[in-house]
């Protein structure tokens, strides 16, 4: 049990670190495409770590399933959203624009 708890805490902390990193990236990166990278980090890696950490603490399989679903849906949405954004930028030739 202790191991699971520790692992869960570690995963959540890791997730928080990635969230922080992606927030810094969102603020510091020069253009939209780079910022998208930071956002994707948050959605994929950070959220993934946090959700995995949270899953380890659940006793109910149902809740585990819900958490997993949340992650999957977020992954899908973020990927699609990132794609659409990038497509728009490419189409409008705005790659070097500094702001959204």
């Amino acid at each position: 049990m202790i191991v699971l708890e520790l692992l869960s805490a570690f995963l959540i902390c890791l997730g928080i670190f990635f969230f922080f990193a992606s927030a810094v990236g969102l603020l510091r990166f020069p253009d939209t495409l780079c910022r998208m990278h930071a956002l994707a980090k948050a959605d994929n890696l950070a959220l993934g770590c946090v959700i995995m950490g949270a899953m380890l603490r659940q006793t109910d399989l149902y809740a585990v399933g819900k958490l997993l679903l949340i992650w999957v849906v977020t992954l899908l949405s973020s990927a699609t959203g990132g794609f659409l954004l990038a497509q728009r930028i490419r189409r409008k030739n705005l790659a070097l624009e500094r702001d959204i």
Partner: peptide, 15 residues
């Protein structure tokens, strides 16, 4: 829309 969006739609609509 591009193929990726179409794919996304196909999965998300049932959800």
């Amino acid at each position: 829309p591009g193929p990726i969006f179409r794919f996304y739609m196909r999965i998300m609509t049932p959800v």
